[in-house]
Design a protein around this nucleic acid. Structure first.
Lengths: 242, 242
DNA sequence: TTTGAGACTTAGGCTAGGCTAATGCCCTGT
DNA sequence: ACAGGGCATTAGCCTAGCCTAAGTCTCAAA
């Protein structure tokens, strides 16, 4: 006789709960991100974020509001119901735990984790996520500095200013990088602009020009407006303090 | 301003290659396992293994043979083409590396890894699998003793006998457990019947009765026919010789 | 040699999730 | 006050994958 067969492989569902599809999970995440500042998420914003056509969004919004995950005000936009918000936060927790795990435990670059996590978040079990979180010591922030929702579904809400909005003369801690573009992230890492670093704002050129900052180690960096808008900072009473 | 938005999240494909769907990947794996002993995989065997109705299989076989992944002889069955075999082995590598990683690095029980790997294998990138394999030191066998195909697509082929087929008086090494049922695996682990253990066949009851074996530590175990058929063994010239 | 059981395939339908084209709503600018 | 632009929705279509019901093939037993 030859080598043994592998197991029969019946399809494997995931959780109790209503069991969402990959697509639904993506839509919920989009709505969450788009409504985070309050207000409604519009059809076209969702469509753009998910790279689908607007009618696809309309159709999905109809289904999701029937299943009670979102509130749809026709021609206005949508918001998450508490149930939808819970599901969205669960996905975001998965995503950010995965990003953290891949960077800490498997040597991923912070620019590469997003794409990988984007696929895995739909396939991992709750159990696996909690094991990863445990192995990491229950991290509170992902590699980009974004807060990780708790297993209970709570997320830290902070008021952060972008570097572009911060007054010259202030000293800040770079808290979070609001981007997932690998090339930009790679560049930022090269420049030493990663979460946790302390920056003193030396100057800013007029007409949306670059901001000049000094790192703790004394080096200065010139940060263009496009990047400065992605660097979320928390003011500190530093030596140059305001 | 509030907390920063997460990135836009455009859908994320996986590899170069023709890009197979989850379903296709599952079908290819089934065909691989069913043809491993040579011959054709039949429609109904595939249907049973994947828990779908036979017509679904017929339909898929048609598509797969059009894309050149299988060879379909109507009313006879199917076999993998070299291309299909490559894809199947890639999936099996993913599956087995994942099982190994989950057990070694995240404390999973060998009975629980299958279901988790079954979902993840469709979502992981090649890169992630290779990082996991690397972190594990390029393992050659998964937790159940099944050989892991190499990244190049080669798999070890061994001729193993089940415990039920092995002659009384022989000494063998338990090489592989051909099962994925968590309850059975849990029981086997309790009994000390895990890959690598050495067993001496003391006796076997007639009429497909249980086999009695002695472990290295001297304990004896009574193994019923159902389980004995799942325990694949390699003979050794042990103290009790052949 | 024929026949019938059983396995396989074909026919026809369904859902999820996309798309384009056509239509409808809202609001701003004149 | 209303016309038009822009966004949202509806209509209608497509594919992947699944299903059941209805043929069709094969092969072994009579």
């Amino acid at each position: 006789m030859n080598a043994p067969p592998n197991p029969p492989a019946p399809p494997a569902p995931r959780a109790p709960e209503p069991q969402l599809t990959r697509s639904v999970e993506d839509y919920l995440k989009s709505v969450f991100h788009l409504t985070n500042q309050g207000g409604f998420a519009t059809t076209s914003d969702i469509a753009e974020m998910l790279a689908v056509a607007p009618p696809s969004v309309s159709g999905m919004m109809k289904r999701l509001s029937e299943t009670g995950l979102i509130e749809h005000v026709p021609y206005r936009g949508v918001q998450l119901t508490p149930q939808g918000r819970r599901a969205a936060l669960q996905m975001i927790r998965r995503h950010r735990i995965l990003e953290s795990y891949l960077t800490s435990k498997l040597g991923y670059d912070w620019g590469d984790v997003h794409v990988e996590a984007e696929r895995l978040e739909h396939a991992v079990s709750e159990k696996l996520i909690e094991r990863m979180a445990d192995a990491l010591g229950e991290p509170r922030y992902d590699p980009h500095g974004a807060p990780i929702p708790t297993a209970a579904g709570e997320i830290e809400e902070t008021e952060l200013l972008t570097l572009a909005e911060t007054a010259v003369g202030a000293t800040v801690i770079l808290q979070e990088v609001g981007d997932e573009n690998p090339a930009r992230l790679h560049y930022l890492a090269e420049q030493g602009l990663t979460p946790g670093v302390r920056l003193s704002l030396i100057d800013r050129q007029p007409f949306n020009g670059p901001t000049i900052v000094r790192l703790d180690e004394g080096m200065t960096r010139v940060v263009g407006q496009e990047l400065a808008l992605l660097l979320f900072c928390r003011p500190v009473g530093g030596p140059d303090g305001e």
